[in-house]
C-alpha cells in the first residue's frame, strides 16, 4: 500500500491574534518570523496514513507545495514517521489558486507514481478552503470520498468512515482513490519520537521546480488563476461586559436567559 499525504505549511493558528498581519497587495498573510506548522487536518491525514501503514504495511510519502521553508513541514512529517517526502517550491507556483495548486500536486503525484491512496486534510487551516481533495481527485481521475476520519482495508477495497451530521457513513471504494480527512478521536496526530526526528534530519528530500514537473504557465501561477481574492480583512473583535441584576440566583438566571434570547444566542 502506497499512500501520499498532501500537506500544507501554514502560520501557527495558536499565535496571538495581534501577530497576524496581511499584505494589502498580495492579500496574503505575512509570515515574517512567525511560527509555522502543518495545517491541522493535514496532520490528521498523516496520522490516518501512519495507522493504515501499521496495519497493512507499505509506505507513506509526504508531499508539500510551499516556500523553501516548507521543508520544515516535510521534516516534521518525517519526524512523525513517514517514509519519504517531496517538496515543490517555486515562487510563481505559490501564487496559484486552488485549481492551480491541485494541478501542481497532481503533476508531482504522477511523477512520484500514482499511489493506492491520496490523502488531504478536509479544510485548509489558513484559507478555510475545502476543495483540495476533490480537485486533486478530479485532476488525477480518481474517485473521491470527503470528510473521512478513518480508512481501513477490507477484501482489497477501502472501507472509509465518512463523518456526516449526526453520525457517519461507511463507504466502500476501490483503490486507487483520494480521501479528505477530518479530525476525530481516532486520528489525533502522534508526537514525533526523538529517534525518528534524528533520522528525519538526515534524510534527503527532493525539491522540484515547475520545470521538473513539466508545468506550463497557462495552468498554474497567478496568470492562470480562475479565482481572485478581491478583499481581505482581519475582523475587529469587540468585547462588551454586561452585569445583570437580580436578588436571587433564580432571578439572575431568568434575567440571563431572557437577555440571551433577546440577543438571539439561544
Amino acid at each position: 500500500m502506497h499512500i501520499i499525504v498532501c500537506i500544507k505549511q501554514i502560520i501557527d493558528p495558536e499565535i496571538p491574534a495581534d501577530q497576524f498581519k496581511l499584505d494589502p497587495n498580495s492579500m496574503r498573510q505575512l509570515r515574517g518570523g512567525l511560527s509555522l506548522v502543518i495545517s491541522a487536518y493535514d496532520q490528521n491525514a498523516l496520522e490516518v496514513a501512519l495507522q493504515l501503514r501499521e496495519k497493512v504495511g507499505g509506505k507513506v510519502t509526504a508531499l508539500c507545495l510551499g516556500e523553501s521553508g516548507a521543508m520544515g513541514a516535510i521534516k516534521s512529517a518525517l519526524g512523525m514517521g513517514v517514509d519519504d517526502g517531496f517538496l515543490v517550491s517555486d515562487q510563481p507556483l505559490l501564487e496559484s489558486d486552488p485549481f492551480g495548486v491541485a494541478h501542481v500536486l497532481a503533476k508531482a503525484i504522477q511523477k512520484i507514481g500514482v499511489p493506492d491512496l491520496v490523502l488531504t486534510g478536509c479544510v485548509s487551516g489558513d484559507t478555510g478552503d475545502k476543495v483540495m481533495g476533490p480537485l486533486l481527485a478530479e485532476a488525477l481521475g480518481l474517485p473521491c470520498v470527503t470528510f473521512v476520519s478513518k480508512v481501513e482495508v477490507k477484501d482489497g477495497k477501502a472501507l472509509v468512515r465518512r463523518i456526516v451530521e449526526d453520525g457517519y457513513e461507511l463507504v466502500e471504494a476501490a483503490f486507487p482513490l483520494a480521501v479528505s480527512i477530518i479530525s476525530d478521536d481516532s486520528n489525533v496526530p502522534r508526537y514525533s519520537k526523538l529517534r525518528d526526528i534524528m533520522a528525519a534530519a538526515k534524510k534527503q528530500v527532493p525539491t522540484w521546480k515547475a520545470a521538473d514537473l513539466g508545468l506550463e504557465g497557462a495552468r498554474v501561477g497567478v496568470g492562470a488563476a480562475r479565482l481572485q481574492v478581491q478583499d481581505v480583512s482581519i475582523p475587529q473583535r469587540e468585547s462588551k461586559c454586561e452585569i445583570l441584576d437580580g436578588e436571587t440566583p433564580e432571578e439572575r438566571a431568568e434575567g440571563l436567559a431572557l437577555r440571551l434570547r433577546e440577543l438571539k444566542v439561544i
Binding site: 521543508m71 520544515g72 521534516k75 519526524g79 526523538l194 534524528m198 528525519a200 534530519a201
Partner: peptide
C-alpha cells in the same frame, strides 16, 4: 537551530 534541534524543541514544547 538545525532541523533536528528545532523539531526536538517543538515536539517537547507541544508535549
Amino acid at each position: 537551530l538545525t532541523d533536528a534541534q528545532r523539531l526536538i524543541r517543538d515536539t517537547v514544547r507541544e508535549f
